[in-house]
Design a protein around this nucleic acid. Structure first.
Lengths: 216, 216
DNA sequence: TTGCATCAATCAATCGATTGATTAATTTTG
DNA sequence: CAAAATTAATCAATCGATTGATTGATGCAA
């Protein structure tokens, strides 16, 4: 049945996403992926053409959900810039919790500039996210809600970077934080509220308190 | 002569550092490294035991000098905690500018948890850096210099994460910042002063301004 | 319905290439 | 000479990919 075929492809993509996330593109062999997915090696090439084709398929499937989520952010005209930032932090951290394997894979791949076409696609999509946040910040400056001297671009680097550091080096951060970042339950119950509260306090301090930031 | 041997080893390490940085651990074959270094393949194993040993040697050479510098900052009893943080930011960003290829490699490797022993060793060494900063922060809290509600561990994640985000996804951040992060001259002249000023302002706001951070 | 053809799906087996590592022979050095 | 350094050649292992054979389901003709 056609449904079975789609389910199987989807299952392979699920497994591939996890294995790629854990081992990277090079480290994840087609044998490992097919083995863990419970399918014959040849099926990967049969369905996706090549290892790289499989990798791209994993990404494209996710990319679609990216773009849908994007539309709900920043378009609300009835609230303050700070409320938008808070809302964004909440949405963003939630997505990290539920997709942290993929998030890791995403920035892993982005940091290896090999496979140029793919890197360009990822960059373009992430740029839309970035532009959205930048717009919120700039609106907040214009309205006087935020300090006029803030470094918009580096604030964005802090939001994404703080999260990435934790997600992409779980071995290190688990040691630093004192609990296992890779445990889903702990991630949801302990990490999520903590980083949400932290990012809100950190950004409110920087964006809304008085300080001189003459150099830029 | 003994000096020649050390020089040759050092030359291999130089080349290996560059090739690893460009291609990652997996992508860099021992043949490529030995070829570009102009030595026989077997010399890598002769000197460093294995590919992993070579990688570790590259890593250790880089990290040791930095750790000495860091310890000197932390142990200075004549200055404030904030001055130590400022000093650390300066030292750290300088390090990133002159070693950004290696910095990228470092966190690339850390984000792949494969090669357990290697990851563990990297984690241990980085933990020493982290602990040093944590100690400065905690001392600042005790002395009343910093807000008592700050999230020490996540502040560290912000310092390292902000930098990593920029260094590890240069394609994206170059677009965001408007200039090429991979250009050494621009990195030194534009990026370094900018991120130094930003991190100082950001952290001073969070660490020293009044704010409630009840949730943690 | 029966018999035949078609086609996607799946499999074990194997391909050539490349990997990191090792050997044994050779050269250099002290 | 003896030890250390260096080499070419080769090792077994693994990689991604491809092959030809087989399966089972489907459609169609008689």
């Amino acid at each position: 049945m056609d449904k079975d075929k789609i389910d199987k492809k989807d299952h392979i993509l699920d497994v591939a996403e996890r294995v790629f996330s854990e081992l990277g593109f090079d480290g994840a062999s087609t044998r490992t992926i097919s083995g863990e997915a419970g399918v014959n090696m040849a099926m990967l090439n049969y369905y996706f053409g090549s290892k790289e084709g499989l990798f791209l398929a994993v990404f494209k499937r996710k990319i679609i959900s990216f773009q849908d989520l994007l539309k709900n952010i920043g378009s609300d005209g009835t609230t303050t810039a700070w409320n938008k930032i808070e809302k964004y932090i909440e949405l963003y951290t939630q997505r990290v919790v539920t997709n942290n394997c993929f998030q890791k894979l995403l920035y892993q791949e982005l940091s290896m500039q090999r496979r140029g076409e793919l890197s360009d696609q990822i960059t373009d999509i992430l740029m839309r996210n970035v532009s959205e946040v930048a717009k919120i910040l700039q609106d907040g400056i214009k309205s006087g809600e935020f300090n006029k001297n803030i470094d918009v671009e580096l604030v964005i680097a802090t939001i994404y970077g703080t999260k990435n550091f934790i997600v992409n080096s779980p071995q290190l951060t688990s040691k630093v934080l004192g609990y296992d970042i890779q445990n889903e339950k702990l991630l949801e119950e302990k990490f999520k509220p903590r980083i949400q509260a932290y990012l809100k306090t950190l950004l409110r301090s920087y964006l809304m308190n008085e300080h001189d930031n003459t150099t830029k």
